[in-house]
Simulated assay, not measured.
Amino acid sequence: MNCKNCNNTLRESQKFCDECGAKIIQNRLKPKVLVAQVNEQFLCVDNKFLRTFIHLFNKPEMVIVSYIDGTRKKYIDVLQYFAIALTLAGIQLFIMSTFFKESLDFQSGFVDGLNSSSSQKDNPFKNINTDFFSKSQSILYILFVPFYAFGTWFTYYILNERVYNYTEHIVINLYYNAQIIILTAVFGTLFAIIGVEYYIVSLALFIPTLLYLFYILKRVFKDTFWAAFLRFIIASFIALTSMFIIGIIITLLFIILSI
């Protein structure tokens, strides 16, 4: 018998491949088998998803550093976890755009004050359209990761604390962003049910999610409070500045190519 994933030779009694670690599936796909697999991965008390989600809060260094060091059985793989987060964000957007469309209306209530506080002629929010941002949120989430990773990597690089390379900082920020996306999707949906606009929820979560990055950096790099806070401030500044610069470059290129 050979592994269907890597073609490694297996013993009949093996439950997992000793080469690639894949679980040996011998039964044909049936509803009962699919239900058992979903329960094992997501619904049972001691499953990887729930364990990864909880430990990213109370001991994020266990999840992140273990993955970077090569221990990848206990928690969900970082790319899989990020993919699950994007899927939840997509489900959230579908639910809200189908059943709670008013919660996605940026013009309803939130901008009304801005509209009334300035003249309609000069008001930059007059014709604001957020459909693009709503429909492209998954792409935006993906694009944020390399900037956040550059911010954290470059911060520790210039401070001569080069514990992890840029790719490993990508891992740190993938887990961080996945956790934030999951929280935003859950809270955004729950608050939409009671009539709170999604953009209000996003603004309310903005500071806590930034502080969560500080918390992760402190735990992963084992810094003191003030040392971690300084690195967090520098990393945030670098990430936001790099996004701003790239945004300007892309805008200028778009203008030049449109002439």
Rank of each mutant, 00 (worst) to 15 (best):
N129G: 03
R72A: 04
F133Q: 11
N127P: 09
E168C: 00
L140D: 02
N58H: 13
T167E: 13
A149L: 13
L88P: 02
V63G: 05
L140N: 13
L143V: 11
K73Q: 06
D112Y: 09
G151E: 04
E161W: 11
I180F: 10
F106K: 10
K74L: 14
A83K: 07
N129I: 08
G90I: 10
N129A: 07
S119N: 12
S136M: 12
S103P: 01
N127C: 09
N58E: 06
F110V: 08
E102K: 09
S103N: 01
L114G: 01
T167R: 10
S118C: 06
Y75H: 01
E61W: 12
S117Y: 13
Y176S: 03
Y164S: 01
K121N: 14
D131W: 06
S97M: 07
L104T: 07
Q120P: 09
I142C: 09
S117W: 13
N177M: 08
I172L: 11
F154M: 12
D69M: 05
N160Q: 14
M96A: 04
Y175E: 00
Y175L: 05
I95F: 11
L86T: 04
L159N: 15
N160T: 15
H169D: 02
I64Q: 01
V78W: 03
I95D: 00
F144T: 14
R162T: 14
I128V: 15
I172A: 02
L174D: 00
K59M: 12
E61R: 15
D69H: 06
A178L: 06
I68C: 02
N177D: 00
S66H: 03
N115K: 15
I128E: 05
Y67I: 06
E102R: 00
I142H: 03
Y166V: 14
K59A: 07
S97Q: 11
I170C: 04
S118V: 13
G151R: 11
W153K: 07
V163Y: 15
G151Y: 05
T152V: 08
L88C: 07
I68W: 04
N129Q: 08
D69Y: 07
I142V: 12
I91P: 12
I95Y: 02
F82D: 01
K73C: 08
A178I: 09
I76D: 00
V171E: 01
V78C: 04
Y81W: 04
N115H: 11
E61H: 08
A89M: 06
Y141H: 11
K101P: 09
Y148L: 12
A85L: 10
F110T: 05
S134W: 14
S136C: 01
S66L: 05
F57D: 00
N115A: 11
K59D: 08
H169R: 06
V163Q: 09
I68A: 03
I128T: 08
F106W: 13
Q137V: 14
D77G: 01
V65G: 01
N123A: 13
L114N: 02
F94S: 12
D105I: 10
T130Q: 13
G70T: 08
V111C: 05
Y166M: 15
T152A: 06
Q92Y: 10
Q120G: 15
H169Q: 07
Y67G: 00
G113I: 09
I64L: 08
S103V: 01
H169N: 05
F133Y: 14
V111Q: 03
